[in-house]
């Protein structure tokens, strides 16, 4: 039985597995740095990364060094941050909304962030004061508030918030499409549409710092709420009788979720289903306790996204698929499976 193995096994096994996941992430990053239009040997990539970190000074081809460090490593690290961030967001939303299908993409938060980002990018809303990330955050917060408002008008249970999310996502996607088709020229429209599906193409080092900072701080902050999240297992009222300030915890964690989603959308675009699938996989391994679930989700999500990015670059020769397409190909069937299983156990 691997189910909950990592939860029931002793601490040595737990930390061992965590170490394996971290090492796996390192290997995946080096792999991601080697694979691409120009194949670069694994050892060369490793040397280039060590050079880039300033640890060594191997004599390498300048172009290879540049491709590995400036393009591929930054891209892989953003992918890792994106996977970690979205997975943690998914785990938190699933706990707070008590809904196995909750995640930023399904709830329309990503769609709202896209609309906000596109408004700033194409229409120049905010007059240059509001950056793309802030625009995305405002869009995400607006979409999230709308969905919660729709879902809260009645206590009709868990399907309601998903329906509200679907409605919100449709609305904001339509708005985005409207803005793009009315205000962008053909070239802009093509690049925005590609970005909307999730693209790591234009990612550079400054994006790594931004994504790393936001996701790292968010993860630490969320870990402080791990016990509060556990207390939501039997609903908000019970969480309140366990001493949790439900409204406060919800507000803080929803804001963090919107912030992380918006930051990632403004860098990578709307990547779906990672936040849905990864927390379930992590829960399967470590159980429902959030002090383990959140770091496990982050680690598995990071690994998954780096690998998904590699797949997106090699699955069609001479072409790079949007990463959102790859995650959706994995995620949509998983979504169906979770929906089916939650139908069996009401």
């Amino acid at each position: 039985m691997i189910e909950r193995f990592a939860a029931d096994a002793g601490w040595a096994w737990r930390y061992g597995l965590a170490l394996v996941a971290v090492l796996g992430l390192g290997v995946a990053v080096v792999l991601a740095a080697s694979i691409g239009e120009m194949r670069i040997p694994f050892t060369v990539s490793l040397k280039a990364i060590l050079n880039g970190l300033g640890l060594t000074d191997y004599p390498l081809d300048r172009i290879q060094q540049g491709i590995v460090w400036e393009y591929r490593v930054s891209r892989a690290l953003v992918a890792a941050c994106c996977g970690a961030g979205l997975s943690v967001c998914g785990a938190i939303l699933q706990a707070l909304l008590r809904n196995a299908l909750a995640e930023p993409y399904v709830l329309g938060i990503s769609a709202g962030a896209s609309t906000g980002a596109v408004l700033v990018m194409l229409l120049g809303v905010g007059g240059g004061v509001i950056g793309v990330s802030l625009g995305a955050f405002l869009g995400a917060a607006l979409a999230f508030s709308l969905v919660l408002l729709l879902a809260a008008s009645g206590r009709a249970g868990v399907t309601r918030v998903i329906l509200a999310g679907v409605a919100g996502a449709q609305l904001f996607n339509a708005l985005t499409a409207y803005i793009v088709s009315t205000s962008a020229n053909a070239e802009q429209a093509r690049s925005v549409m590609f970005w909307l599906l999730g693209s790591l193409g234009g990612v550079r080092w400054p994006d790594v710092w931004l994504a790393g900072l936001v996701v790292g701080v968010a993860l630490v902050a969320c870990l402080l709420f791990a016990r509060a999240l556990d207390a939501f297992a039997f609903g908000e009222d019970l969480a309140a009788t366990l001493g949790i300030s439900v409204a406060g915890v919800r507000l803080v964690l929803f804001a963090i979720t919107a912030l992380v989603t918006a930051t990632l959308v403004s860098i990578v675009g709307a990547v779906g289903f990672v936040g849905l699938v990864i927390p379930h996989a992590a829960r399967f391994l470590v159980g429902p306790g959030h002090s383990r679930l959140l770091p496990a989700s982050a680690l598995i999500g990071a690994n998954f996204m780096v690998l998904a990015d590699i797949v997106s670059r090699i699955i069609v020769p001479q072409q790079v698929l949007p990463i959102g397409v790859v995650t959706a190909l994995v995620g949509a069937p998983a979504f169906a499976l979770i929906l089916y299983r939650s139908r069996l156990s009401p």
């Binding site: 196995a100 009222d237 019970l238 429902p288």
Partner: peptide, 14 residues
Amino acid sequence: IALVEQHATTDTDI
């Protein structure tokens, strides 16, 4: 003060 609700439910595999 502790409360036991009428019908506590969860979909967590707890």
